[in-house]
Write a protein that binds this DNA or RNA. Structure first.
Length: 513
RNA sequence: GGUCCGUUCGUCUAGGGGUUAGGACGCAUCCCUUUCACGGAUGAAACACGGGUUCGAUUCCCGUACGGACUACCA
């Protein structure tokens, strides 16, 4: 009987969920769904000093927007709760005691100053390793150097202490990672990491191992930044007697800045014009507003597709995958080892692909919300008219909000005329044609619809023995102020007859000065 | 500095002892078109370097270089 797959996404609520975290959540989700497993959300809030109010809600909202809904979480509960580490505080103590009893951990009473002094001393001695480890702990104030009575006295006096793991001096630690295969490290290069902090909270390392065990996690899928501390985790599983049940490790390559220097960070959003967060985030501390993929006009489906391909690929030439397809085709074995640079252009390309297939109503809703977000007021049109505009622009934009800019002339008469087009295309012929066209329109009593407008235009062109191409640029310039754009007949229909005539009139008087 | 991990077009990547080293983004040219875009076609563009192993290495091994992560009572 093979056990049920259980994976967890374990962010820490210290701010906005980073896009790298979103990818980790996605891979966990895909793997869980594919194996009819369980996707757990665990909140790792053991650092009370870094806790940020609202960060947890931000995580839920982000996952919801993306459709990556956890099966078990602080919000919906589950059989292995609580799912917030701060609420599990009392659980960890017994495992710490067990480790101390078995001689795998010890109390340490060193103050910050003493720790600092130790590092200074080592630095002065040109030591290679500045850490609290199997060698240096012999000179420090801990339950290995102090006798039992001294330790008891310190405890009784309420002296703050931490519990550290007693790292073996000479031992090779190795494990098989699903992505990196066999990796190994020597214990002499590792340090005596703190397991229990002086406030009684566990550190990440202890809480993580204990919770993964208690929550019956079968696969730990997380960022590669954890690879170096995995050796410590492996040791902990063994010391706690859980070596056999240790989950499989799957370390994901890190997403690098567009410049390739270092991992993608908060600052890069401004620098490269790419969001780094799924949703807009209002930092309660710095008061900064950090832009999100959602607000920038990215579709969640496209973002998921893009993110899935950042480190994974199906081995075929198919690029477009729905979440459902990803669930069936995803495989841990096809995750790459090297860190990808965040490919900004590709993120946009994916969005464009999804936009082309998207229903107009959804694009329209996003366009409207973008307008509101930007403080742009839209005319009081019926949705059908807006939809026609969306349809007109769909093929030439990347984000729904692009319509606002690219087709701004639909909402507002041009205030200036494109210099280049003016120089090249505005001449006596086009000027005369615009005037005649205006008169034709004015006299006509037919319905003001693109088809009909086209007829009027064609008739006039024929009558004057002109060519479409010769004359259209001038008309477009007069109506939109630009040298290019979508089907002009539809544009004229959208802005209305009256406005079209007014614009032609204005162009004739302004451009012929 | 130390430890761990990585290295195929500018970028995301496929491949893997003998291939014209494949695709995508971006770029360029051409076609379509009332212009811009979409679409279509074509093109430029890569196995970091040095040693081995081998009949043969981009692929396997070892070094070097470069890059990244970690090195907190942060996760």
């Amino acid at each position: 009987m093979s056990q049920q797959v259980r994976v967890r996404f374990a962010p820490s609520p210290t701010g906005a969920l980073h896009i790298g975290g979103v990818r980790t959540a996605l891979y966990n989700y895909l793997f869980a769904r594919q194996n009819d497993g369980v996707f757990v959300l665990r909140i790792e809030d053991t650092d009370q000093t870094r806790y940020v109010a609202g960060a947890e809600d931000y995580i839920y909202e982000s996952l919801e927007w993306l459709g990556l809904i956890p099966d078990e979480s602080p919000k919906v509960g589950g059989n292995y709760g609580p799912y917030r580490q701060s609420e599990r505080k009392d659980l960890y103590r017994q495992y710490v005691d067990q480790l101390i009893e078995q001689g795998h951990a010890y109390y340490a009473f060193d103050t910050d100053q003493e720790l600092e002094a130790m590092r200074e001393r080592l630095k002065a001695a040109k030591a290679k390793n500045l850490s609290y480890n199997a060698i240096t702990r012999r000179q420090m104030k801990n339950s290995l150097t102090l006798d039992a009575q001294a330790v008891q006295e310190l405890m009784d006096a309420g002296t703050p202490y931490v519990v550290r793991i007693k790292m073996p001096l000479k031992e090779e630690i190795r494990f098989q990672d699903r992505v990196f295969d066999w990796v190994k490290a020597h214990s002499s290069t590792l340090d005596d990491k703190v397991l229990l902090k002086s406030d009684g909270m566990p550190t990440y390392h202890l809480a993580n191992v204990v919770d993964d065990y208690l929550m019956k996690i079968t696969h730990v899928i997380r960022g590669k930044e954890w690879l170096p501390s995995s050796y410590l985790h492996v040791l902990l599983y063994e010391y706690l007697g859980w070596g056999e049940q240790r989950p499989e490790f799957v370390h994901l390559p890190l997403i690098l800045k567009p410049s390739g220097e270092g991992k993608l960070s908060k600052r890069d959003a401004q620098e490269y014009g790419v969001p780094v967060f799924p949703l807009e985030y209002h930092d309660p501390k710095s008061k900064e507003i950090l832009t999100g993929f959602r607000e920038e006009g990215y579709f969640s489906e496209g973002l998921i597709n893009f993110l899935a391909f950042l480190g994974w690929n199906p081995g075929t030439e198919q690029e477009i995958f729905s979440l459902k397809q990803l669930v069936s085709d995803f495989s841990l074995d096809r995750i790459g080892k090297s860190d990808p640079v965040f490919p900004v252009d590709k993120a946009k390309w994916y969005n464009q692909q999804y936009l082309k297939e998207m229903e107009d109503s959804r694009i329209l809703a996003m366009m409207k919300s973008r307008a509101q977000h930007q403080g742009i007021s839209l005319p009081d049109w019926e949705d059908a008219k807006f939809t026609a505009l969306v349809d007109l622009m769909k093929d030439r934009i990347t984000f729904p909000g692009d319509i606002l800019e690219e087709a701004s002339y639909v909402f507002q008469a041009p205030e200036s005329y494109d210099e280049k087009t003016l120089k090249k295309k505005w001449n006596e012929v086009s000027s005369a044609f615009v005037k005649d066209l205006k008169d034709t329109f004015a006299k006509d009593e037919g319905a003001w619809e693109a088809e009909h407008i086209k007829h009027l235009l064609q008739d006039l062109i024929e009558k004057q023995e002109l060519k479409f191409g010769k004359v259209m640029a001038g008309v477009r310039l007069a109506v939109t102020g630009l040298g290019g754009g979508p089907d002009l007949m539809v544009v004229m229909e959208l802005i209305g007859k009256e406005e079209t005539l007014a614009r032609m009139e204005k162009a004739l008087s302004e451009l012929n000065k």
